[in-house]
């Protein structure tokens, strides 16, 4: 009788500590008793709460950082636009005007990209996007994405080698997957040195269709393989390169919605990103 009362009191005490924001450690007793089970449940609750809190905190920080970053990032082009608008106003030369307009246009597209990414991310987060896996022509989609980065690749004299096995087909949403591949390619180009090669290859085994993009660029540090796919994550080797850490995150989200997954492998030098799509 008194034993039960004591057990109840212990539970109440634990709850109090939890309410006060303390973290409960797991009990060392694993008895098949109600009190032991409750203790265990409370410890898990504590774990969950602190996990949630940390996650929230992290997200808050990330958002804060992102806002700061966006603001920062926006500020530059905006400042540029300001100055170049002034210059444009003041310019009399047609060629000068042309040049300034070009710069204004590129700046604007930068900002456009920013805001678009932002919107995409928001949509993904809110699961407003539907993946329609109605296209089978994977090769076409990949080629499209390659074409989209061609300009950027050419700018750095990067050669893209595309290898695809015969008759590779995989159900996918052409738009979204294309976007995902585009992000990966863009990344590779961004962090590859000039005059290098990027290998794009598609293969299939019994279980998966594998799309890999391999570069010989700066790569990432050990242990970052899983991190680079996180939202807002900028690798340690990204010194100076513009970006918000959203590309690979979006890519992974899209691939997950395809019921597949993405993996990163360090190539030293360089990085290999592999997209696995289920064969169905």
């Amino acid at each position: 009788m008194f034993h039960r009362r004591k057990e109840m009191q212990d539970v109440s005490f634990l709850l109090e500590r939890l309410l006060n924001g303390e973290e409960l450690e797991f009990s060392l007793e694993y008895k098949d008793e109600l009190s032991s089970k409750i203790h265990y449940q409370l410890a898990r609750l504590s774990e969950k709460i602190s996990g949630n809190e940390k996650k929230l905190q992290k997200e808050r920080d990330e958002i804060r950082e992102l806002i700061a970053e966006i603001a920062h990032q926006m500020r530059n082009p905006l400042a540029n636009m300001e100055s170049y608008l002034e210059l444009l106003q003041a310019a009399e030369d047609k060629t000068e005007r042309q040049a300034y307009l070009e710069i204004l246009r590129s700046t604007q597209s930068q900002m456009h990209f920013l805001t678009e990414s932002f919107i995409k991310m928001a949509r993904l987060e809110n699961r407003l996007i539907q993946i329609r896996r109605d296209s089978a022509a994977l090769s076409e989609t990949i080629l499209k994405s390659i074409l989209q980065v061609k300009n950027a690749a050419d700018a750095k004299n990067i050669f893209i080698e595309y290898t695809v096995a015969e008759g590779v087909q995989a159900l996918h949403d052409a738009n979204w997957l294309g976007e995902a591949i585009f992000n990966v390619l863009e990344n590779s180009i961004k962090y590859s040195p000039c005059d290098s090669v990027i290998w794009v290859s598609v293969s299939q085994n019994e279980m998966y269709t594998r799309i890999s993009v391999t570069d010989s660029g700066t790569g990432i540090c050990e242990g970052e393989e899983a991190l680079i796919f996180q939202r807002f994550y900028r690798g340690k080797e990204t010194h100076g390169q513009p970006g918000f850490g959203l590309g690979l995150y979006l890519c992974r989200e899209i691939v997950l919605l395809h019921r597949g997954f993405v993996k990163a492998k360090r190539k030293e030098p360089g990085l290999e990103i592999a997209i696995f799509l289920p064969r169905m």
Binding site: E206, M207, Y208, L256, F261, P278, R279
Partner: peptide
């Protein structure tokens, strides 16, 4: 193999 892949994929996700 197909079912096997399903299983592992599920575990992974």
């Amino acid at each position: 193999s197909v079912t096997g892949m399903e299983v592992v994929g599920l575990l992974k996700s």
